[in-house]
Nucleic acid binder design. Structure first.
Length: 476
DNA sequence: ATGTCC
């Protein structure tokens, strides 16, 4: 990216001043190195977001931002419905409520190592992964609607996991305002056999070891110590979320003119929050959030079953579950005034600071856990929300390493088999149904996650708590 | 991300 047009606010914050049809400035949080490596399209896309009706304060890009459909991945934007604000399907992303949860196991790395191969094989056998994968749960119409309304709460009631899991999930596991009747039959049909499946692309289930603690107090509150084994699950709402996104995107493009919305880019199709389509999308999108929460909950149950067999002394407790493709109604202070806003986070994690009422009581003094999934074979990080992040980007942080190379380019450069062999040599066991998928996800195709986390920390978006190193990875 | 193009 050409940084000569940007105003440097500080070493980790850069502004594109409002110009032309931009209603507000665009702000990118990154250090100079990340910024220079960032695709020019991120600046274009985030500037286009700043042109949408009802946008408040600024459009933001996180340190892991890269080119996406309409909105950049790693984009945050909030809209005021009272001010003509919009909701955008492309601003949430196709994989609605894609997210990651981390489970504590109570195990130390040494206990796990003797069983590493058995665990890798059993997880791969029990966790459905890959394009079009189907699971052990099959939903009829009635159960589909119950799942879409109930989320992880529905899953726990059906025997998948523990009641105590729910308090460690955003929205206590059930997104309010979901409207299953706004989800098309086609979307439901695609999902009926896909519950409890990882999917493909960058989705994974990873067994990890805590390799470094950065913040002792926060780590103690989160239950993390050096040498601990944890499990992280990254996946979303599968075919259902994709279908909802596709259908509403089309509908929003067709209706934009009727709502007097001039689209700077077709891919930024949106509808006023206060319109039939806006409300219908919000209902369907929230149902999609519940689908993703239920999906991760079922996968958690399957993971517990595998550990019970291979390492029966393990006790898997949910640390936290974050969604990084959402639009949520939140109250934020803007220029001294509290406003109800529709906050879009696409490839960005909610990061509420200490004291926020939505953070579970026993974690509230340190802030919300923010889980940053690394790429395959690289570290992941646990951060905590900060008090200052509300004024920086509506309490948001990055979500991962962010791609640095296209999938196509990655498959030309690497072969899945060799990527797996190299990682095996470093003690990391990869299991995947797709060699090509492994090549696409080669560590070299991603940005340096440590640099991304450092920029998020130094920029004040969140504070680093712990680093996790992979031991076993089931890759979609 | 995605029944990787109804």
């Amino acid at each position: 990216m050409d940084i000569s047009e940007l105003i440097k606010c500080n070493d980790y914050c850069w502004e594109i001043p409002a110009q032309g049809k931009m209603r507000v400035p665009a702000v990118i949080y990154a250090d100079e190195t990340l910024l220079q490596a960032m695709d020019e399209k991120v600046a274009q896309q985030i500037s286009n977001v700043a042109k949408l009706p009802g946008i408040v304060q600024a459009a933001y890009a996180m340190p892991d931002a890269h080119w996406g459909y309409g909105f950049p991945i790693g984009g945050v934007a909030a809209f005021d419905a009272e001010d003509g604000g919009v909701v955008s399907a492309g601003g949430v992303g196709f994989d609605i409520s894609c997210g990651v949860r981390t489970l504590l196991t109570g195990l130390k790395k040494q206990e796990l190592m003797a069983k590493q191969t058995a665990l890798a094989d059993m997880l791969f056998y029990q966790i459905p992964a890959g394009v079009g994968s189907t699971g052990c749960v099959h939903l009829n119409h009635q159960e589909m609607d119950a799942m879409l309304q109930g989320g992880a709460r529905w899953a726990v009631r059906r025997g998948f996991g523990l009641e105590s899991d729910l308090e460690r999930i955003e929205e206590q596991g059930c997104m309010a305002g979901a409207d299953a009747s706004q989800v098309s039959e086609q979307a439901k049909k695609r999902q009926k056999d896909e519950m409890g499946t990882l999917g493909s692309g960058n989705h994974y289930l990873e067994v990890q070891c805590v390799s470094r603690i950065f913040d002792q107090r926060a780590a103690a509150a989160f239950g993390l110590q050096e040498g601990d084994v944890v499990v992280s699950i990254h996946c979303g709402s599968r075919g259902l979320g994709h279908q909802i996104g596709t259908e509403f995107l089309k509908r929003m493009v067709l209706e934009a003119g009727r709502h007097g919305i001039e689209l700077p880019d077709r891919e930024l199709a949106c509808a006023p929050v206060n319109s039939a389509t806006g409300q219908a999308y919000l209902g369907a999108m929230r149902a999609g959030i519940n689908c993703a929460l239920a999906n991760r909950q079922i996968l958690t149950h399957l993971t517990r079953k595998v550990f019970a067999e291979i390492l029966p002394q393990a006790e898997l407790r949910l640390l936290y579950d974050v969604s990084h493709n959402t639009c949520k109604v939140e109250t934020h202070e803007v220029e001294g005034r509290k406003r109800k806003l529709f906050v879009h986070r696409k490839g960005a994690t909610r990061a509420f600071g200490p004291g926020h009422p939505a953070v579970p009581g026993d974690l509230r003094s340190v802030g919300q856990p923010v889980i940053i999934g690394g790429s395959m074979g690289t570290a992941s990080y646990i951060l905590a929300g900060t008090a200052g992040s509300e004024q920086l980007a509506y309490s948001s942080a990055c979500h991962g390493a962010g791609r640095a190379m296209s999938r196509h380019a990655a498959t030309k450069r690497w072969r899945g088999r060799e990527v797996m062999d190299v990682l095996a040599g470093r003690g990391i066991m990869i299991r995947s149904p797709s060699q090509r998928g492994v090549a696409e996800e080669a560590p070299g195709a991603y940005k340096d996650v440590a640099a991304v986390v450092e920029a998020a920390d130094a920029g004040g978006l969140a504070t680093t708590v712990a680093r996790l190193e992979p031991l076993v990875c089931v890759k979609g």
